[in-house]
Design a protein around this nucleic acid. Sequence first.
DNA 1: CTGAAAGCGCTAACAA
DNA 2: TTGTTAGCGCTTTCAG
Lengths: 345, 345
Amino acid sequence: MKRITVHDVAAQAGVSLATVDRVLNGRRGVSEAMSQRVHSTIDRLGFTRDHFAASLATSRRHRFAFILPQPDGNSFMHALHDMVLAQNKLLMTRRIQLGVMTYPAFQATALACILESIDAQQTDGVAVVAVDAPRVRAALEQLQARGVAVITLVSDIASAGATPGRLHCIAIDNVAAGRVAGSLIGRLNARRAGRVAAIAGNLTLRDHSERHLGFSQVIGQEHRPLVLLPPAEGLDDGPATAAIVRRLLDTHADLIGLYSIGAGNRGIIAALEQSGRQHDIVVVGHELTPHTRAALLRGAFDAVLHQSVADEITVAVEALRAAADGDTGHVPAPIRIDIFMRDNV
Amino acid sequence: MKRITVHDVAAQAGVSLATVDRVLNGRRGVSEAMSQRVHSTIDRLGFTRDHFAASLATSRRHRFAFILPQPDGNSFMHALHDMVLAQNKLLMTRRIQLGVMTYPAFQATALACILESIDAQQTDGVAVVAVDAPRVRAALEQLQARGVAVITLVSDIASAGATPGRLHCIAIDNVAAGRVAGSLIGRLNARRAGRVAAIAGNLTLRDHSERHLGFSQVIGQEHRPLVLLPPAEGLDDGPATAAIVRRLLDTHADLIGLYSIGAGNRGIIAALEQSGRQHDIVVVGHELTPHTRAALLRGAFDAVLHQSVADEITVAVEALRAAADGDTGHVPAPIRIDIFMRDNV
DNA sequence: CTGAAAGCGCTAACAA
DNA sequence: TTGTTAGCGCTTTCAG
């Protein structure tokens, strides 16, 4: 019960190894007749290419750059950062090297500068947590023109016109996430009326604005007893979000729902718990971190919407590898919106 | 910028390839001094073993058997079945072969017979959706004694005594899942009182009984306005579960919560929608299938708890491979409890 | 206990 | 257009 190899195929088809290889990899330089013959013996023998041998023979290496905002106090970005480094260790054995570069959060110019400085010779692909700005978009198109595969991660850029600016966007469906938050806050407040608020980091980020869109759709259309306040921006900063929450609590005695669209959850949790009103307000946030997890367990948060950092890195690397190997037609797996509540954290 | 290979390590350490290989794979027959020397040069040079070459050189193949209940009308089991076959195609290229065997659902004896008939020579590992019964347990221990790696999938067996009966259990935390269901039904019924019911397939299955345990804990301890009815068993059968639901609806005008612990969701959905009371009752079920998904979108179901079939197969295969390669110390990744609601399906 | 040499199955120069 | 031939980096006999 031996394995069927290219040798067997070559012998059976009466051709050489090289011909089999050409057919197998769809390379040109094979006559139609030969190609047919090889193909038919391939599936007559039930041959399947050995992935390990193939990878060994092509001594190809890949270098991918991950460009992320500086984590600062942002646990999610911190986790993303760490996960890239962790994956890098594992991927070494598979001939893939990951590098990380960071830019100050929200700073389109800084991000663009980094993108513009990337050496296309040294880099096969780039995954970027994008800031949606013209210069960033231009830099990404430039990179693609120089043969670097580009995907956005977590937050996308606008795709105006014909050229998409990036190959894929690896992220959750943020409008849907906002809708989930809206439904949760609406339904957990069933038979109750009052105001609800949403706090974003920065509404120029596409992920934040998309979440807000979905949220306001659901609250506005399906939960009429709830009144949505105008969105606030806390720049993903703990003290800033805490101040916003304190102001909301002071101003609105009837606040019964709060959606934390971005980061800065530590500030939100602190301000809520200081007020003692955390159990009267349904709170939904994003990204499971030690802080949001603890808040869920204490009942300060009611749900946390999450995107698996591990999945995102895996899918991103896979997409970059496919692109670098010229495998068009690769469709990256969608990233699930995970809902965490007290009992499944 | 060449890759560092075993040759480099051997040369630098002044030993032969074979010696490097021995220390690399922790094989015996190397003096302590040699071992030290090789180890130090390995991390001096920052050598990492090339996964592809290693796999190619060891022409090892693995055959794993998946033993599942017959899907019949059970969409989840059907998906599991299909996923094993799909993964089998992909894994062929990685020298892993997956086989599927089925037994009539719930039938411990039939399952035991299959397990007892497995050829330990032909099989490196077994993943089984278990029925918890003494003879099944004995058969699994027997298999392990004959050198076959055994893991349970989705539903576990009791682990009495010292010998665990299986190496790992790849499944969600079913008690936690039941708790999530309880919290959802309790909280979505806030400020309301009434009865809630749970319908299992068969409470002798550990996954079903664990879910029921978690559910009754939360309802009993945290949602006092809700009264939990005794559990019903529908044998994962559509018509049977439909009949149960109809009886519940007739008997209890104040039914406001329903937890579908097992399968047979099609029957539950049909009976609910026939009654027209589906929007007055908070319904939580398990496993996202075309039917439960549609029910979520229509509002007949309020939430679906899900275990990713793809993840489970992947983790199971990885665990079996590790076991077959003698890699004790491998810890399989936990399976997440996914919560799906209308907007994130 | 250590070393030399022959593959694993596929790919890619280089010839023909 | 087709064939020949030498590896890719590691493992594994089989001698020493």
